[in-house]
């Protein structure tokens, strides 16, 4: 169970509530678990709460790694790292 979707914080309001934009859909999200979240951050939204602030550098790193993996697999046998 645990549908979570990334959204961008667009405003931080009172009472621990932020407006978060999920590709054009805006919802109110509780920030109690991510007090560090600020406007512009991407957060993981689960049932109307932000559960974590997205680590953008790690996301890029993962994608880069995946690209390298795929590229490595295209090399002839014996050349795989």
């Amino acid at each position: 169970m645990c549908l979570g979707v990334p959204g961008k914080v667009i405003t931080v309001k009172d009472d621990w509530i932020a407006e978060v934009d999920i590709s054009g859909v805006v919802i109110d999200v509780g920030l109690q678990f991510t007090p560090e979240a600020k406007v512009g951050d991407y957060v993981l939204v689960h049932t109307g709460y932000a559960m974590h602030v997205m680590d953008e550098a790690e996301a890029m790193e993962t994608l880069k790694l995946l690209e390298e993996m795929g590229a490595a697999a295209e090399l002839p046998d014996g050349q795989i790292s």
Partner: peptide, 20 residues
């Protein structure tokens, strides 16, 4: 395009991992 979702659905990268 939902940022942080669509990037992780790339068919070329998927094919690469499957080959690997």
């Amino acid at each position: 395009m939902v940022k942080y979702l669509s990037e992780f659905r790339d068919p070329d990268l998927a094919a690469g991992i499957l080959r690997r």
